[in-house]
């Protein structure tokens, strides 16, 4: 299980935003993505997760390896915490939701409707979903938004446990999680704006 990226160019709305990306992610390794707003971190993560095709370059990863957590958590307000997690466990063919509930100390909230949770609690529930997917490579987009200090510590220890179990993580974040991880600043890879490779795609969007 490794993720390798060769000379990747990703585009948003038909315009290339990042180009010439090369890196690889081995089991047990975490990579932190940094860069100013609008620099293409989310676009890169969405491309790697398979939600959009790259403009050029190669993504080498096994089938069904990547679990993706977006800005929004995909929670249903009218389902309880446990029902939300059970749904994703069923979709990913897993059984156990208790590990995830313990890891993010959601036990007291178990029977609350997700719609009545606070922003930070919703985020914890959204992150608990990553444990449930059972997939080795985590792609996390600003995972610590609206988390308090304790919850960030919970999240960091969940990531550490995941890495310890042979997983890998690619995290776009601005805060220091206290992980022993490499940092990749995407700013130098910003695509030149005259490279309108993707413009021909516009007609099909």
């Amino acid at each position: 299980m490794t993720l390798t990226i060769r000379d990747l160019c990703v585009a948003r709305g038909g315009l290339p935003v990042l180009e010439g990306l090369n890196f690889s992610l081995a089991p047990g390794q975490a990579l932190i993505l940094r860069g100013p707003n609008g620099s293409g971190k989310t676009t890169l993560l969405r491309t790697l997760a398979g939600l959009q095709p790259p403009l050029s370059g190669e993504i080498i990863a096994g089938e069904d390896q990547i679990a993706y957590a977006a800005h929004s958590d995909g929670l249903k307000a009218m389902l309880t915490v446990a029902e939300n997690l059970t749904f994703w466990a069923d979709v990913f063919g897993q059984r156990d939701i208790e590990t995830a509930i313990d890891a993010f100390s959601l036990d007291p909230l178990r029977d609350r409707l997700a719609g009545t949770l606070s922003a930070g609690q919703k985020r914890r529930l959204g992150l608990a979903r990553m444990l449930i997917t059972g997939r080795p490579i985590w792609m996390l987009d600003e995972p610590t938004v609206s988390l308090d200090v304790d919850a960030v510590a919970l999240f960091a220890s969940a990531v550490r446990a995941h890495l310890g179990a042979g997983g890998a993580a690619l995290i776009a974040t601005h805060i220091d999680l206290g992980l022993e991880a490499e940092v990749l600043d995407v700013t130098p890879f910003r695509a030149a704006h005259d490279a309108r490779l993707g413009a021909s795609d516009e007609a099909f969007l």
């Binding site: 969405r46 997760a49 398979g50 939600l51 990547i66 679990a67 993706y68 977006a70 800005h71 929004s72 958590d73 995909g74 929670l75 249903k76 307000a77 994703w88 979709v91 990913f92 979903r129 997917t133």
Partner: peptide, 10 residues
Amino acid sequence: DGTLDLLATS
């Protein structure tokens, strides 16, 4: 609520 993105990667 982002469920479609997550379903598409499931």
